[in-house]
Simulated assay, not measured.
Amino acid sequence: MRLLHTSDWHLGRSLHREDLLPAQAAFLDHLVETARAEQVDAVLVAGDVHDRAIPSLGAVELFDRALQRLARLSVPTVLISGNHDSARRLGIAARLIERSGVHLRTDVARCDEPVLLEDAHGTVAVYGVPYLEPALTAAELGAERVGHAAVLGAAMARIRADLATRPGSTRSVVLAHAFVVGGEASDSERDISVGGVPSVPASVFDGIDYTALGHLHGCQTLGERLRYSGSPLAYSFSEADHRKTMWLVDLGPGGEIDARRIDCPAPRRLRRLRGTLAELLADESLAGHREDWLEVTLTDAARPERAMEQLRARFPHTLQLAFDPQGRLDDGPVGYAARTRGLGDAEIALGFVRHVRGSAPDPVEEALLREATEAVGAAAGGED
C-alpha cells in the first residue's frame, strides 16, 4: 500500500508578515498532483492543518479545495488535529464527510477507531491520534499521570487492544502529533511543555508498522518505521537549511517499509547573511541572494542609519534585521550608579548615547547635547 505522509501545513501562517497563502496553495496543488501521479492509496496528514484555532477564511478555503480534489481522485485522506488546530472546529461534520473518503480524527474517543484500507495483500488499519493536551485528556484516556508520555501511552494501549481483535495479517499505521525523543526542533514550533516534560519516548509506538509523525518542522527519520514529514514550507529562518519534503511510503505485505522523499515547491530560498552594512552592500558574491528571503545580522560597531532601507534597495526581500555589534565600546559590568557618580548632566547624557549606540557621539552631537543640558540647567535655575 502506498501512503503519502505530510504534516504541519499551518495554513494561514505568514513569515515575518510575508503572506504565504499563495505558497501554501502551490504546495497543495503539488500534493494533489503527487497523489495522482504516484497513484497513492491514502494521504496521511499528521496535524497542524491550520496555524490558528480560528483560521482565516483564505486558509479554510484552501483546505476545502484540497480535500475536494483528493476526494475526486478517490484517494482516502486521514487527518488528525495538531496543537495549533481547534480539534472541535476541525472535526465538525467529521462523520458526515467520511462518506467522501476524508477521515478526520480530532476526537480522543475515536483514537482506537481505525480507518480500514484494503489492498491486494489485505487490510491496513490506520489510527489517528490527535494532539493530546495532558490536562484535558488524561482522565478520559485513563492515564496514570498527567503528562505527554502518559496520555499518549494510554492512547496507544487502546490502539493495541483494538489491533489484538483483528486478524494477525492486519498491518498497522498510526498518525500522531507529538515531540518524540530524538527529534530535532526548530524555532517555529509552539512550545508544548505545559503539562510536564514535552517529549515522549519512541518506544511508545513499538509494534506499529508505520508511524506518521507531525509537530516538528524538519523532515526526520527516528527509525525505519517512525518518521516526521516536517512542514512543507519554512516558517522561520532556523529552517533555512531544511529540505522540505513529504514521505512516499510503500507498506509491503508483511509490513516492510520502503520510503522516499518527495520535494515540496519552495517560493523562495531562505538565507542568513551577516556582516557590516558596507560589506553586504558591496560584496558581489552576494548578488545571487537578491530574490531570497533574508535574515540579516549587521555587525557594525554603531547602528547605521536607514539600514533596512539600504538593504532592501539591494535585497528587496529582506524580512528580518538584527544587530550584533563587533568591537563596540563596552561599559563593562559596572552598575549605573557607579558609572554616573560625580558626573554632570552633559556627561551623563553623553555616556547614555555611548552605552546604547556602542560608539561615542561625534563632535556635532556632543556640542548639541552639551548645549541642550546647559539650557535645561539654566531654565531650572531660573525657576528656583
Rank of each mutant, 00 (worst) to 15 (best):
V376E: 07
D283T: 03
A202H: 00
G252P: 02
L294N: 04
R52N: 05
G342H: 02
D51I: 06
P167Q: 01
L136E: 15
E374F: 00
A379Y: 03
A155Q: 08
P76V: 11
R171V: 02
G12F: 06
A178V: 08
D85L: 05
Y336H: 11
T373G: 01
G377M: 01
V173L: 07
V75S: 12
A53T: 10
T318Q: 01
L62K: 06
G254V: 00
H355A: 13
G351H: 02
L15R: 08
R339M: 03
L251F: 06
R227E: 06
D19L: 13
D209P: 03
A93M: 14
G255Q: 04
Q310M: 08
A155H: 09
A138K: 05
P333N: 01
T299L: 03
D384L: 13
L273G: 09
A234H: 11
S359M: 12
L79G: 07
E189V: 05
R303K: 12
S285I: 00
D64A: 12
T77G: 10
I92W: 14
E305R: 13
I348N: 00
H289F: 11
R190K: 11
P316H: 06
H30S: 14
I80M: 13
A66E: 06
T123L: 06
G168I: 00
V151H: 07
S14H: 08
S81I: 10
W293E: 04
P201W: 01
T276D: 03
A94R: 15
V102S: 07
R268E: 05
A138D: 03
A278H: 02
T245V: 14
R354T: 14
E291Y: 03
P361L: 05
G288H: 04
Q320S: 14
A42S: 09
E38A: 09
S7N: 13
H16D: 12
L321E: 08
E291L: 07
V146P: 09
W9T: 07
G168R: 13
I208Q: 03
D324G: 04
A375H: 07
Y127A: 10
Y210P: 01
S172H: 07
E374W: 00
P198F: 01
H84F: 04
S100Q: 15
E144Y: 03
R95T: 11
R269G: 11
A93K: 08
H177V: 07
D331Q: 12
I159N: 06
A135E: 14
T373I: 00
D191N: 13
V180M: 01
V356I: 06
A37C: 07
R52C: 02
P333H: 02
I257F: 00
F179K: 05
R225K: 12
V204F: 00
Q310N: 11
V356F: 08
A338P: 04
R271M: 07
M1R: 08
S100W: 14
R339Y: 02
L216E: 10
A135D: 15
V364F: 13
D41E: 14
R370Y: 04
T221Q: 15
L369N: 03
T318S: 12
L369E: 02
D384Y: 01
L311Y: 09
A164Y: 09
A157V: 02
E295N: 10
C219S: 15
F323G: 00
D241K: 14
T170C: 11
A378T: 08
A178W: 04
L216I: 07
L96V: 15
G142I: 03
L62T: 05
V353I: 12
L233R: 05
E118L: 04
S172I: 07
E383A: 14
M246F: 13
R269H: 11
L163C: 12
L319G: 10
T165D: 08
H103K: 06
